[in-house]
């Protein structure tokens, strides 16, 4: 459900910058650990972009993997979920990537 308000933010953020120009492509970054489901965003986008300059635009969604740094062993590793555990067994880890939720750029006509 929260994807709807997130998707509305996409439209707000873009139109604040592009005004009434027709937008052909919207590039988003939705990290694997962001808590946002890209397919839900696509679904919501079709519904709420209608009658905006973003109607019919293609969504290009980059989904960065979760990555963390372990303060125990000093290694970086892929974080597949929110469980903060390094393969070395340490839980003293810092999330480095995967929580991104941003509009990167657009193509306007």
């Amino acid at each position: 459900m929260h994807e709807l308000s997130i998707t509305q933010s996409v439209i707000d953020v873009v139109t604040e910058r592009t005004g009434g120009d027709r937008v052909a492509i919207v590039r988003l970054q939705i990290g694997k650990l962001s808590g946002i489901v890209p397919d839900s965003v696509r679904f919501c986008f079709e519904l709420i972009a209608a009658d905006t300059p973003l109607a019919g635009a293609v969504l290009e969604i980059d989904e960065p993997l979760g990555r963390a740094h372990c303060k125990g062993c000093g290694e970086d590793f892929e974080l597949r979920d929110l469980i903060l555990l390094c393969p070395c067994g340490s839980a003293d880890v810092v999330v480095m990537a995967g929580t991104e939720l941003a509009v990167k750029s657009v193509e306007v006509v």
Partner: peptide
């Protein structure tokens, strides 16, 4: 019911947005 995805014109202009959605 807008067309789901319109053809992308050959000439488009890139605008960097770089803004967090929240």
């Amino acid at each position: 019911g807008e067309p789901r995805s319109q053809p992308i014109p050959a000439a488009t202009r890139t605008i960097d947005i770089e803004q967090e959605l929240l």
